[in-house]
Nucleic acid binder design. Structure first.
Length: 494
RNA sequence: GCACCGGUGGUGAAGCGGCUAACACGCAGGUCUGCAAAACCUGUAUUCGCGGGUUCAAUUCCCGCCCGGUGCUCCA
């Protein structure tokens, strides 16, 4: 089944397939590593991960490049304030970013490209732009792109700039530009600032040029898909197109995917609103990595997502349902007799088909979830009625595996990220931000819990229900849920 | 101001010309249980922001209005 994806450039849903018939070549704008990533950043990377994984599910090979912007104004400024070289400043944030991606189950792109490691390619590109008459150098040694040389400018964001030429010249530093809208390719070195000595002068790259240079370096002059947050559409991506196509005279990326911003409690997330959250903030509040992942991917990428704590709780409970169900099939006691239930076999097939169809339809994750939950209910019912057999278990586990190939929330890997977040909080002196229930839960080792469970089981056998309930309640307060079942006692950390 | 997107139950959220308006969470009642939990069953929007229009038929298309968001500047 082909993947249909909304293409910002064409303004419609287009079929996405590798233009060279081999691997789908995609470039996704990565982070500027000057701080810890927040959930808004991660929604974008998570949705791109959904795309990657969906392509894999559809057996389309991918070559995915992501840049790491490790030089820009903010970085230079912050590093200077800290009195350290920029690389020393960015390294821990890059590390933290990659760890956070791992925590959220975001697959690593095939290629990670750091801006500072590709300066020569950028310089080359600027030289080519210069020979093509699309770039010029100003007196201070900076280079700008000449917008007037690229009539197609605005084709991505559907802006017609012809009417709005040259407004007031705002930035005094840029008084030498030919036109106010011309953007920087290369910024001349200022005293004391990080800079590179190159053929086009001493300075540092403008922001947009790195993506053009690195995308072409790893994917060629023309490739399949370029993705990023909606804010990047203009001017960043528009500028990339202008720079690249002015040199190659070929379409830069054929498809463009833009992920919408998220809202927090119905408002734009911002530090001043007090609704700004990093991944680490949420882990310390006791939310599981899987719940954060599910909450951030369950609303399709083209829709605004309103992020709330209630939403996280919902995601937590929904994942719980899936995990509990899967345990029902995989527990050692669950030995089903040979055979199959035809109705369930049909349901499993249908669920799989509907699931893939929904994802293929512009990555409709909300729609894709539905058939999985429907199948879970059908299977639970059959299980309760004793109409469930070994073949059904195999078929349904296969559907769940396919669900997890994209959603990746059933497999429980939540303990480690939480443990690491606590370690980090300790180191950063942020233990005050840790939810008390999380601390209480972490204080109980698995062994201690097993001992309490054993004590409770004994109390129950002696019909000392008061004591049994007391243990259960006390553990519940510490976030440990105990469940009795025919097959014995189960417990889990909330 | 200009441009774009959206307004569906208690909540989140699909559907976008005609099926009983998915799915999840929540809540209420029931089955099971020592009690719970899990699981299942039943109920939870006679209705899709408001007002017009097109159509045999509109939540779905068109127009107007109201409300929310976003972009036009660094930003995922």
């Amino acid at each position: 089944m082909p993947l249909r994806l909304f293409n910002t450039l064409s303004g419609q849903v287009d079929e996405l397939s590798p233009m060279d018939g081999k691997a789908l070549r995609m470039y996704a704008c990565g982070p500027t590593v000057y701080d810890y990533g927040h959930i808004g950043n991660f929604r974008t990377f998570l949705q791109i991960d959904v795309l990657r994984r969906t392509l894999a599910l559809l057996s389309i090979p991918v070559r995915h490049v992501m840049n790491i912007t490790d030089v820009d104004d903010k970085i230079i400024c912050n590093a200077a304030e800290a009195g350290i070289p920029i690389a020393e400043y960015t390294a821990p944030f890059e590390q933290a970013f990659l760890e956070d991606l791992e925590v959220l189950g975001v697959e690593r792109p095939e290629i990670l490209a750091r801006a500072t490691e590709h300066i020569p390619r950028m310089v080359e590109l600027i030289q080519k732009l210069s020979s093509a008459g699309a770039a010029y150098k100003t007196e201070d040694g900076s280079w700008y792109f000449r917008l007037a040389s690229f009539p197609e400018y605005g084709k991505l964001s559907k802006k017609d700039l012809s009417g709005m030429e040259d407004g007031a010249r705002v930035d005094l530093d840029e008084y030498e530009k030919d036109s106010a809208r011309d953007f920087a390719l290369w910024k001349a070195a200022k005293p004391g600032e990080t800079s590179w000595d190159t053929a086009i002068g001493r300075g540092r790259p403008g922001w947009h040029i790195e993506c053009s240079a690195m995308a072409m370096e790893y994917l060629g002059e023309s490739f399949d898909l370029h993705a990023g947050g909606e804010d990047l559409m203009f001017p960043h991506h528009e500028n990339e197109i202008a720079q690249s196509e002015s040199v190659t005279h070929r379409p830069f990326a054929r498809n463009w995917m833009h992920v919408r911003f998220l809202l927090v409690d119905g408002r734009k997330m911002s530090k001043s609103e007090g609704n700004f959250f990093t991944l680490r903030d949420l882990l310390l509040k006791g939310y599981k990595a899987s719940a954060i992942r599910l909450a951030l991917i369950s609303v399709p990428y083209r829709h605004q997502l309103n992020f709330t704590f209630d939403g996280l709780t919902e995601a937590t409970n929904a994942i719980d349902r899936l995990r509990t169900f899967r345990k029902r099939l995989t527990a050692p006691q669950a030995a089903f007799s040979a055979g199959s239930n035809p109705a369930l076999q049909t349901a499993a097939c249908k669920a799989q088909t509907d699931y893939i169809a929904a994802l293929s339809n512009d990555l409709n994750t909300a729609e894709a979830r539905a058939p999985i939950f429907e199948l879970v209910r059908a299977a639970n019912t059959a299980l309760d009625q004793g109409q469930f057999f070994a073949d059904d278990s195999d078929a349904i586990l296969a559907v769940l595996a396919s669900f997890d190939a994209v959603f990746d929330v059933i497999e429980d890997r939540d303990a480690e990220p939480t443990r690491r977040a606590l370690e980090w909080a300790q180191k950063e002196g942020r233990m005050g931000d840790v939810a008390p229930e999380l601390l209480a839960s972490q204080a109980l080792t698995d062994e201690a819990i097993d001992a309490l469970v054993a004590e409770r089981t004994l109390a129950k056998r002696q019909r000392n229900f008061a004591r049994a309930d007391q243990i259960r309640n006390e553990m519940a307060e510490k976030g440990i849920i105990i469940e009795d079942s025919k097959d014995g006692v189960r417990w889990k950390r909330k």
